[in-house]
Each structure stands twice: as C-alpha cells, then as structure tokens.
C-alpha cells in the first residue's frame, strides 16, 4: 500500500514503485481527466502538477513522489491560476476534441502561477511540450494572455 497526496486528499493505492503516476491516477484511482498520449513525455497530455510544477505523469514513477502534493485537472480549478485558465479557455472557445486540453490547461496554469505576465517567449517555453492535433495553438496563446490579463485586473 502506498499513499499520495492528490488534490488535497490522501489517496491510498496498491502499485509497484516503478508504476508511472499516470496509470495510478487513471486506472487505480479512477481520475481519468489526466490523459495518456504517448508514454514518452513527448506530447504533454498527461501533465500534472507536483508541488506546483508541471510534470509528465506518464514517466513519473510513483515510488519517487513521496509527500509532494499532486494536483490534477480535476483539482486545478481550485487554484486561482487554474480557474482563470479554465475560464479563458471557455471564453475564447479554445477547445476542439479536448483530449490534449487537460495537459494544456495544467501547463498553462503552472506557467501563470510562476509567471503572472507571460510574453510570447514564456508561452513558447512553457507550452511547446504540449501537442494538440486539432491545432488549437493560436487560441491557446490568446487564452493564456487573456487569463493573465484577467488575473491582473
């Protein structure tokens, strides 16, 4: 039995230490908002926060997480940055199929939490690891700026 702190709650589960967090979240704990995309940290669909920093859960072994706090898409709305990103995403109608958007939103929320007023270079640096096959990139960029502006206001 192992324990992880996820979205503010202690979650107990059974899995070997090498199991990537992604599969504990999805298949063991039923938190399916975090998505499987590539399994090699190349697409960003599985992004969660570990102590506020964006991490690809598809490679992160649960054995190494310890008591660091995990936030997933199901919990990100409780953070100010996360809520502002979710709102901007809907205001600008960013989403198409939506499959990558959990990861996009997690990456954007981490960016805004660390960099409240990101410029284009900041957005590139924070978001380039997240692939969107529907091609919503233009709106993602606009929505991040909108969320930043809304938080400043």
């Amino acid at each position: 039995m192992a324990t992880l702190k996820i979205n503010g709650e202690s979650k107990v589960f059974e899995a070997t230490e090498d199991t990537p967090l992604l599969w504990v979240l999805r298949d063991v704990l039923g938190l399916t908002g975090t998505k499987f995309g590539c399994g090699i940290a190349q697409c960003g669909a599985c992004t969660v926060h570990v102590d506020g920093k964006p991490v690809r859960s598809c490679l992160l072994p649960v054995g190494g997480i310890g008591d660091r706090a995990i936030t997933t898409i199901e919990g990100i709305g409780a953070t100010p940055a996360g809520a502002s990103v979710q709102k901007a995403w809907l205001d600008l109608e960013v989403i198409q199929c939506g499959y990558c958007q959990s990861g996009q939103i997690m990456a954007a929320a981490a960016l805004l939490a660390a960099t409240p007023h990101p410029d284009d270079a900041d957005i590139d640096a924070a978001m380039a690891g997240n692939i969107c096959r529907c091609g919503t990139y233009v709106r993602i960029r606009d929505a991040i700026k909108r969320a930043a502006a809304a938080r400043a206001a």
């Binding site: 940290a41 190349q42 960003g44 570990v50 920093k53 991490v55 690809r56 490679l59 992160l60 072994p61 190494g64 640096a125 380039a128 690891g129």
Partner: peptide, 14 residues
C-alpha cells in the same frame, strides 16, 4: 527535451 530535462537540467521525473 524540457519535459524531461527541465530548463534547470535537473529532471523532475527521474
């Protein structure tokens, strides 16, 4: 690269 290696070079994954 940054997803695994981080901008700091210290991997958040392994």
């Amino acid at each position: 690269c940054a997803s695994c290696h981080d901008w700091s070079g210290v991997s958040p994954i392994t």
